[in-house]
């Protein structure tokens, strides 16, 4: 009786194992192979149709390639990778400098008591340098006080003004975002900023001198 039951169970198990193996592995593998499809590769050798001869095609490709290459700026531009916190500086379509940077910490600061909310994130996309300034002064915004657990002073309060915090230079890229230096050097290469792009002193100097007002900054 037990022996028969075991044989039944073994048959049942083997049958189901076969089915599951086929469904999970063999049939999907067969679907992904070329065996199930008849060859449909075009065998026509008609090349007399207008616009399809080799010379015309090669000319078209060359024109399109030139058009595409023209989209890359010849003058200086910068690429910022916020995921790796790395920057790349290009001039004449060549990489002239690269290094670490710090970008937005991807945080939403919420203060229910003060009914305040601010997102610290470096915006993706393309921006332009709209203003360059040496020895910048930082006017602390409200979020700086909220983040430090301090009361917010009036907008003209002298405590808002700080020198040295932004390093030797700043390059504004719009909406309050900037490329600037930092006093927090041990946290370079990390996502720790409030949305600005922080560079090390030497990198900032090269970037400041290479990038012009109007130069593009590509951020991703």
């Amino acid at each position: 009786m037990i022996r028969s039951l075991l044989i039944f169970l073994a048959i049942l198990f083997l049958g189901l194992l076969f089915f599951v193996t086929m469904v999970l592995f063999a049939i999907p593998a067969l679907q992904e192979s070329t065996l199930v499809l008849p060859s449909m590769i075009e065998v026509s050798s008609n090349s007399d149709i207008a616009g399809t001869d080799q010379q015309t095609l090669e000319n078209d490709i060359a024109k399109l390639q030139t058009k595409l290459e023209k989209l890359t700026p010849v003058n200086a531009y910068m690429v910022v990778n916020t995921s790796d916190n790395h920057y790349y500086l290009f001039k004449d379509k060549k990489l002239v400098r690269e290094g670490i940077c710090s970008t937005g910490k991807n945080e939403r600061l919420v203060s229910a008591e003060r009914n305040y909310e601010h997102i610290f994130h470096t915006p993706f996309g393309v921006r332009k340098i709209i203003r360059k300034q040496p020895n910048p002064v930082w006017t602390k915004p409200d979020w700086s006080y909220i983040e430090d657990g301090l009361p917010i002073p009036s907008s003209r309060d002298p405590s808002r003004v700080e020198t040295g915090t932004l390093g030797a230079y700043k390059l504004e890229i719009g909406d309050g975002f900037m490329i600037h230096g930092t006093i927090y050097k041990r946290r370079m290469g990390m996502s720790v900023t409030h949305g600005c792009i922080r560079l090390l002193d030497e990198d900032l100097e090269v970037v400041y001198k290479t990038m012009e007002v109007g130069s593009k900054v590509y951020i991703y």
Partner: peptide, 15 residues
């Protein structure tokens, strides 16, 4: 798109 929600500290010690 990781975005961490941080509640503002009540004072400088918490900050």
């Amino acid at each position: 798109n990781p975005l961490r929600v941080v509640h503002a500290p009540k004072d400088t010690i918490a900050a």
